[in-house]
Design a protein around this nucleic acid. Structure first.
Lengths: 211, 211
DNA sequence: TTATAACTTAAACACTCGTTTGAAACGGCT
DNA sequence: AGCCGTTTCAAACGAGTGTTTAAGTTATAA
């Protein structure tokens, strides 16, 4: 399977370099060198550099978003079975936890998390819009579910708070404990596991603040 | 004053394009064309493209951070005069409000806010590290002050929560209401003023969550 | 084995990049 | 007026960009 092998090697190298150096600062030459494939292989298999980053997103995001959807719907169904409202924190956990779970299992996943953490503030229109397009369905589901969980919160306000939460979340993914070097005079970052728990606490408290 | 005029025009154009397209995607040719100066003018006045972005940061951040420092110290002194602990929310307001105040007065300030909002997740080492270097003193002051405000919070946990807050904050600055186009099916964003207030509520609630 | 499709390869293409150069123009000074 | 430091200018430099080409190689199916 020289074919599949080549495509996979390209995707892995792209994930690594796009995350570390950014999309535009990564050259096809350094990418194909790292992947140990010919320079023309990317255009042959993915059409263009833009086609490549779309494939990088799709490979990880498709299975990941399927799991997130299942978990959110599980929270909704259990709440309905109990005749209660779903809890905001549980919905957020269903949205966030699969990401960190996936970091532990998949190799190179940390690279991908840095990449999507940066994608929300990506200046390049094509990169950002393709990322948003991939994430929009699961984001919509989260938004509608949180409306049920927090019915007293005006729609506009809920939307803003979710945006704040996304900001905190993507910031954590970019500055993961592994990557960030401890600044002198500041405490060393929490281990990843605990950091994720604390993020959930932080976001839940912010979402559920009185209005 | 043709000299100052040229430098200012370059700084304004750089602020605008670096914010909109990112540092690397902005070419000296498009930048100098927008500024209506000669291509070589940037290298003459600022030495290099890197020298230019340093100057872009310094022009806005120096006065801004001075104001933030004054306001934080004012909160601390008033608390001490009352023999009470400073309130976390007031410290955060002193940190955030000057940014939005400055958006209303300075023209082109919104561009700059987008720029620094993106700088925290900037892949390029030189850009990010220079930004961090500019912000570190005021960030340190905020951190120490919040330690006084929330003494029951472990140092590591406080640090993480401040990071989450920075993420929410920078995300808001990048996706300002003016820039973001409303997605169909979602509420339109809050006006800037109210958005800033809500950000403060969100962050305060997250910071003061029980542990 | 042979025809055919899939894949890999080295080389070139047409641009764009940040920076440098040396001459020209400007402005304040004696 | 004439000098001189400052600023502007058009042109070019060398290096790097994503993509294309056409020939070569390998695998698949008849």
């Amino acid at each position: 399977m020289a074919q599949t092998d080549t495509k996979t090697r390209i995707l892995d190298a792209a994930e690594q370099l796009f995350a570390r150096d950014g999309y535009h600062s990564t050259s096809m030459r350094s990418l194909t060198e790292l992947a140990q494939v010919n320079l023309a292989a990317v255009n042959y298999h993915f059409g263009s550099k833009e086609g490549l980053i779309k494939a990088v997103f799709a490979r990880r995001l498709n299975p990941l978003n399927r799991i997130r959807q299942e978990q959110i719907e599980a929270v909704l169904q259990q709440a309905e079975a109990e005749g209660a409202r779903p809890q905001a924190k549980e919905l957020l956990r269903a949205f966030i936890a699969p990401i960190l779970e996936f970091r532990k299992t998949e190799s190179g996943a940390q690279n991908f998390l840095t990449l999507i953490g940066r994608s929300l503030s990506e200046p390049d229109e094509t990169v950002r819009s393709y990322f948003i397009q991939q994430v929009l369905p699961i984001f919509t589901l989260l938004f509608r579910s949180l409306q049920h969980a927090l019915p007293q919160l005006p729609e506009q306000l809920l939307f803003s708070r979710i945006q704040f939460a996304m900001g905190a979340m993507s910031h954590m993914m970019v500055n993961s404990p592994q990557h960030q070097k401890t600044l002198p005079g500041f405490p060393k970052p929490l281990p990843t596991e605990q950091m994720a728990d604390e993020l959930l606490e932080f976001i839940s408290a912010g979402l559920e603040a009185p209005c």
